[in-house]
Design a protein around this nucleic acid. Structure first.
Lengths: 140, 140
DNA sequence: GGTGTAAATGAGAACGTTTTTCATTTATAT
DNA sequence: ATATAAATGAAAAACGTTCTCATTTACACC
């Protein structure tokens, strides 16, 4: 029951919040922009404004229910938080997003921060490239 | 002589381009936003529009003269390209930007891309934290 | 089950950054 | 010197996102 997640996060259980959660959980694409979520809502005939979608997603982020990816200059995309820290690989052709975890890189980052006298709070790593499918499409 | 750099890049040698180059080369801060450059121009009594600054910086990027950093949700900043690939450490308090190179991370990224079937074209890594100075300020 | 209160919402305006438009100016090849 | 394509300035538009404010809603309490 998702209502519990909302209550635990100190958020009232409202239709917009339930719907946005539902969309994030059921979407075939794990990574969605606010606009994506909004369009999905329109398709479901839910009269929920874009501003509310932004608000809800931002609150979810604050509550640790979703993570926000700020990819390059593009608009932010959100993913359901599953507790696993991971980084991302992005296909520059089809915008597919894949995830990976690499403890070697994690460790090196901590070392670098320490070397430079930084108290690390966060990091973001994106690898850009052309995914296998798009490489093949290009050959033909 | 910077004019040569512009000509080599296939760009006409114009006052705005020379001035922007000059600012990037002489600025005490290596990382500048378009707005930063524009303000500097105003201080120099150069009547160059902000749109031109954006255009020039984007062309310089295309020509490989500068790199654009798209940090999180913030506005882009530019740095003179010196041929050395490097990543960045950012202080979330004072916005200081430091650079680092780490071959271990570079290598791991290549391996991960290969594992995932990606032809890597680029990557971006930002480590966020609190720099030494800001840690000390906080203690007092 | 009502009711009060603070929180949440919708609509549209506002925002900050960046890009575009278009008429005018400029650099450069000839 | 001149023609031509490229570059510019100013203002408007675009973009994703946040804010404002009047209205609605969820929920704690009776």
């Amino acid at each position: 029951m998702e209502s519990q997640d909302l209550r635990k996060a100190g958020l009232k259980v409202t239709l917009p919040r339930l719907k946005v959660l539902e969309i994030l959980e059921s979407a075939e694409q794990r990574h969605m922009s606010a606009e994506d979520v909004y369009k999905r809502l329109l398709n479901m005939d839910e009269e929920i404004g874009l501003a509310t979608v932004y608000r809800v997603l931002t609150q979810f982020e604050g509550a640790g229910l979703v993570s926000r990816l700020s990819i390059d200059g593009a608009h932010a995309v959100f993913e359901l938080e599953d507790g696993s820290h991971h980084d991302h690989l992005l296909c520059i052709r089809c915008n597919r997003i894949e995830e990976f975890i690499d403890e070697v890189i994690e460790q090196r980052q901590r070392e670098i921060a320490q070397q430079k006298g930084f108290e690390m709070t966060d990091h973001s790593l994106y690898i850009y490239g052309v995914c296998r499918d798009c490489q093949q499409k290009n050959e033909s």
